[in-house]
Amino acid sequence: MLELSTIKIIRCIVCPTGCEIKAKKGANEKVTFEGYTCERGLEYAQQEFYEPKRILTTTMRIENGLLPLIPVRTDKAILKEKLKDVLVEIAKMKLKAPIKMGDILIENILGLGANIIASRDLIKLD
């Protein structure tokens, strides 16, 4: 039997039980997962291992709005390693009020396939 070595420990956050799932690699380079107690846990571990993604929630500058910032988010999870680049891109932007919740503020940001959308309405400051 082939010796398996643990290459990553993933703490499952699907539910508060918090299973520790181990990603193990054998001699054939095939990765297997151990320690999950449900299917959702396995899916989570696989996603975290191969392509960890996060929803990004931040703010964007707004001119002439009731507030100087509008909260925004990515409309789908994006690669974790790209978060920083996306944050810089958003920080450079400055838009004008009024804005409606769900408005696409940046389309397909950095070609990642996700849009930056507004998290709320923001009226113009009169």
């Binding site: 703010t59 500058r61 100087p68 910032l69 944050l87 920080a91 450079k92």
Partner: peptide
């Protein structure tokens, strides 16, 4: 200072 200014400067 203001958030985005500092963010860009710090980066």
């Amino acid at each position: 200072g203001k958030t985005k200014d500092i963010q860009l400067r710090n980066i």
